[in-house]
Simulated scan of single mutants.
Amino acid sequence: MIDRAGILALVPHQGAMCLWDEVLDWDADSIRLRAHNHRDPAHPLRGDDGRLRAVHLCEYGAQAMAVHGGLRARAAGGVAKPGLLVALRAVELLVARIDDLPGALECEARVLIDSDAGWQYAFRVSHAGMLLAEGRAAVLPQSAT
Protein backbone atom coordinates (compact mmCIF):
# COMPACT_ATOMS: atom_id res chain seq x y z
CA MET A 1 0.00 0.00 0.00
CA ILE A 2 1.17 3.53 -0.80
CA ASP A 3 0.07 6.33 1.54
CA ARG A 4 -0.81 9.96 0.83
CA ALA A 5 2.79 11.15 1.19
CA GLY A 6 3.82 8.62 -1.45
CA ILE A 7 1.04 9.81 -3.76
CA LEU A 8 2.02 13.48 -3.27
CA ALA A 9 5.55 12.59 -4.40
CA LEU A 10 4.16 11.26 -7.71
CA VAL A 11 1.62 13.83 -8.91
CA PRO A 12 1.44 17.56 -9.59
CA HIS A 13 -1.78 17.83 -7.51
CA GLN A 14 -0.73 19.06 -4.09
CA GLY A 15 -2.41 19.89 -0.81
CA ALA A 16 -6.17 19.45 -0.73
CA MET A 17 -6.25 19.19 -4.55
CA CYS A 18 -4.60 15.77 -4.29
CA LEU A 19 -7.77 13.72 -3.97
CA TRP A 20 -6.43 10.23 -3.19
CA ASP A 21 -5.31 9.05 0.25
CA GLU A 22 -3.88 5.63 -0.54
CA VAL A 23 -3.05 3.20 -3.31
CA LEU A 24 -4.47 -0.20 -2.44
CA ASP A 25 -2.99 -2.14 -5.34
CA TRP A 26 -1.45 -1.53 -8.73
CA ASP A 27 0.31 -3.22 -11.63
CA ALA A 28 1.38 -2.12 -15.10
CA ASP A 29 -2.21 -2.12 -16.38
CA SER A 30 -4.36 -0.93 -13.50
CA ILE A 31 -4.62 0.75 -10.11
CA ARG A 32 -6.99 0.74 -7.11
CA LEU A 33 -7.13 3.74 -4.75
CA ARG A 34 -9.07 4.96 -1.73
CA ALA A 35 -10.10 8.42 -0.49
CA HIS A 36 -11.97 9.77 2.52
CA ASN A 37 -11.89 13.50 1.73
CA HIS A 38 -15.30 13.73 0.05
CA ARG A 39 -16.80 14.38 3.52
CA ASP A 40 -14.39 17.24 4.30
CA PRO A 41 -16.31 20.55 4.49
CA ALA A 42 -13.19 22.28 3.10
CA HIS A 43 -12.96 20.03 0.01
CA PRO A 44 -11.68 22.31 -2.80
CA LEU A 45 -14.29 21.12 -5.32
CA ARG A 46 -17.36 21.78 -3.16
CA GLY A 47 -19.90 24.21 -4.55
CA ASP A 48 -21.06 27.42 -2.90
CA ASP A 49 -23.91 25.41 -1.38
CA GLY A 50 -21.42 23.08 0.33
CA ARG A 51 -22.24 20.10 -1.84
CA LEU A 52 -19.79 17.93 -3.71
CA ARG A 53 -21.42 16.83 -6.94
CA ALA A 54 -20.96 13.45 -8.61
CA VAL A 55 -19.45 15.13 -11.68
CA HIS A 56 -16.34 15.67 -9.56
CA LEU A 57 -15.79 11.92 -9.63
CA CYS A 58 -14.35 12.53 -13.10
CA GLU A 59 -11.50 14.44 -11.40
CA TYR A 60 -11.01 11.50 -9.05
CA GLY A 61 -10.76 9.26 -12.12
CA ALA A 62 -8.32 11.59 -13.86
CA GLN A 63 -6.14 11.79 -10.76
CA ALA A 64 -6.14 7.99 -10.55
CA MET A 65 -4.56 8.09 -14.01
CA ALA A 66 -1.92 10.55 -12.79
CA VAL A 67 -1.02 8.39 -9.79
CA HIS A 68 -0.80 5.30 -11.99
CA GLY A 69 1.35 7.13 -14.53
CA GLY A 70 3.66 8.29 -11.76
CA LEU A 71 4.01 4.77 -10.39
CA ARG A 72 4.69 3.32 -13.84
CA ALA A 73 7.29 5.98 -14.60
CA ARG A 74 9.01 5.49 -11.24
CA ALA A 75 9.11 1.72 -11.79
CA ALA A 76 10.86 2.40 -15.11
CA GLY A 77 13.41 4.66 -13.41
CA GLY A 78 11.94 7.99 -14.46
CA VAL A 79 9.22 10.50 -13.73
CA ALA A 80 5.83 10.84 -15.40
CA LYS A 81 5.47 13.22 -18.31
CA PRO A 82 3.09 16.09 -17.60
CA GLY A 83 -0.28 15.70 -19.26
CA LEU A 84 -3.46 17.59 -19.99
CA LEU A 85 -6.90 16.05 -19.62
CA VAL A 86 -8.52 16.55 -23.03
CA ALA A 87 -11.59 14.32 -23.11
CA LEU A 88 -14.10 12.43 -21.02
CA ARG A 89 -16.20 9.79 -22.77
CA ALA A 90 -19.06 7.47 -21.86
CA VAL A 91 -19.31 8.99 -18.38
CA GLU A 92 -22.20 7.67 -16.31
CA LEU A 93 -23.01 9.29 -12.99
CA LEU A 94 -25.25 7.12 -10.85
CA VAL A 95 -25.73 9.53 -7.93
CA ALA A 96 -26.24 13.30 -7.73
CA ARG A 97 -23.76 14.09 -4.94
CA ILE A 98 -21.06 12.39 -2.90
CA ASP A 99 -20.45 14.61 0.15
CA ASP A 100 -23.11 12.73 2.13
CA LEU A 101 -21.61 9.24 1.67
CA PRO A 102 -20.35 7.90 5.01
CA GLY A 103 -17.51 5.59 3.91
CA ALA A 104 -14.48 5.74 1.67
CA LEU A 105 -14.51 6.20 -2.09
CA GLU A 106 -12.62 3.62 -4.12
CA CYS A 107 -11.49 3.83 -7.70
CA GLU A 108 -10.30 1.28 -10.20
CA ALA A 109 -8.59 2.66 -13.29
CA ARG A 110 -7.32 0.59 -16.21
CA VAL A 111 -5.05 1.55 -19.11
CA LEU A 112 -6.80 1.34 -22.48
CA ILE A 113 -4.22 3.16 -24.62
CA ASP A 114 -0.62 4.00 -23.78
CA SER A 115 1.40 5.70 -26.50
CA ASP A 116 3.72 8.63 -27.08
CA ALA A 117 0.66 10.49 -28.38
CA GLY A 118 -1.30 10.11 -25.13
CA TRP A 119 -3.09 7.89 -22.68
CA GLN A 120 -6.63 6.67 -22.25
CA TYR A 121 -8.01 4.98 -19.16
CA ALA A 122 -11.31 3.53 -18.06
CA PHE A 123 -12.28 4.38 -14.48
CA ARG A 124 -14.94 3.24 -12.02
CA VAL A 125 -15.56 4.95 -8.67
CA SER A 126 -17.57 3.17 -5.99
CA HIS A 127 -18.67 3.50 -2.37
CA ALA A 128 -19.35 0.47 -0.15
CA GLY A 129 -19.52 -1.75 -3.23
CA MET A 130 -22.01 0.53 -5.05
CA LEU A 131 -20.93 1.99 -8.38
CA LEU A 132 -21.10 5.82 -8.32
CA ALA A 133 -19.53 6.73 -11.66
CA GLU A 134 -17.64 5.27 -14.57
CA GLY A 135 -16.19 6.48 -17.82
CA ARG A 136 -13.10 6.97 -19.91
CA ALA A 137 -10.59 9.80 -19.78
CA ALA A 138 -7.95 10.83 -22.32
CA VAL A 139 -4.76 12.74 -21.58
CA LEU A 140 -2.31 14.26 -24.04
CA PRO A 141 1.33 14.82 -23.13
CA GLN A 142 2.12 18.42 -22.37
CA SER A 143 5.46 19.84 -23.42
CA ALA A 144 7.58 21.18 -20.59
CA THR A 145 8.00 24.92 -21.15
Rank of each mutant, 00 (worst) to 15 (best):
2 I>C: 13
3 D>S: 06
3 D>N: 11
4 R>M: 06
5 A>S: 14
7 I>P: 04
7 I>Y: 04
9 A>P: 04
9 A>G: 02
10 L>P: 02
10 L>A: 00
11 V>Y: 00
12 P>K: 13
13 H>G: 03
13 H>L: 00
14 Q>G: 15
15 G>I: 09
15 G>E: 11
18 C>H: 02
20 W>T: 12
21 D>Y: 03
21 D>W: 02
21 D>R: 07
21 D>S: 08
22 E>R: 15
23 V>T: 09
23 V>E: 06
24 L>M: 13
24 L>S: 06
25 D>A: 15
28 A>W: 03
29 D>W: 01
29 D>C: 02
29 D>A: 14
30 S>T: 11
31 I>D: 07
31 I>L: 08
32 R>A: 10
32 R>V: 06
34 R>L: 05
36 H>F: 01
36 H>S: 06
37 N>K: 09
39 R>Y: 02
39 R>V: 14
40 D>G: 09
42 A>Y: 01
45 L>M: 09
46 R>D: 10
46 R>E: 12
46 R>M: 10
46 R>S: 12
46 R>N: 12
47 G>Q: 14
48 D>F: 08
49 D>S: 15
49 D>P: 14
50 G>A: 15
50 G>V: 11
51 R>P: 03
52 L>W: 03
53 R>Y: 12
54 A>N: 07
55 V>A: 15
57 L>M: 13
57 L>S: 11
57 L>Y: 03
58 C>W: 00
59 E>I: 03
61 G>M: 12
64 A>T: 04
64 A>P: 01
65 M>G: 00
65 M>P: 00
66 A>F: 03
66 A>W: 03
66 A>E: 00
66 A>M: 04
68 H>G: 08
68 H>E: 13
70 G>E: 04
71 L>M: 07
72 R>N: 14
74 R>Y: 02
76 A>S: 15
77 G>M: 15
78 G>Q: 14
79 V>M: 03
80 A>P: 06
82 P>V: 00
82 P>S: 05
83 G>I: 05
84 L>M: 14
87 A>L: 01
90 A>N: 14
93 L>G: 09
94 L>N: 08
95 V>C: 15
95 V>G: 05
97 R>L: 01
97 R>D: 08
97 R>Q: 10
97 R>T: 11
98 I>F: 12
99 D>E: 15
99 D>S: 14
100 D>Y: 05
102 P>G: 10
105 L>Q: 10
106 E>S: 07
107 C>I: 13
107 C>H: 03
107 C>L: 15
109 A>M: 07
109 A>V: 08
109 A>S: 14
110 R>L: 10
110 R>A: 11
114 D>L: 07
115 S>T: 15
116 D>R: 13
117 A>V: 02
118 G>Q: 04
118 G>W: 00
119 W>T: 13
119 W>C: 11
119 W>F: 03
120 Q>K: 14
123 F>H: 11
123 F>K: 10
124 R>P: 00
125 V>A: 01
127 H>N: 05
127 H>L: 02
128 A>E: 14
128 A>N: 11
129 G>I: 06
130 M>D: 11
131 L>M: 09
131 L>A: 08
131 L>E: 13
132 L>W: 07
132 L>Q: 09
133 A>Q: 09
134 E>N: 07
134 E>V: 01
134 E>G: 07
135 G>R: 09
136 R>N: 12
138 A>W: 05
139 V>E: 04
139 V>Y: 00
141 P>G: 05
142 Q>Y: 02
142 Q>W: 00
143 S>E: 13
144 A>M: 14
145 T>H: 12
145 T>Q: 13
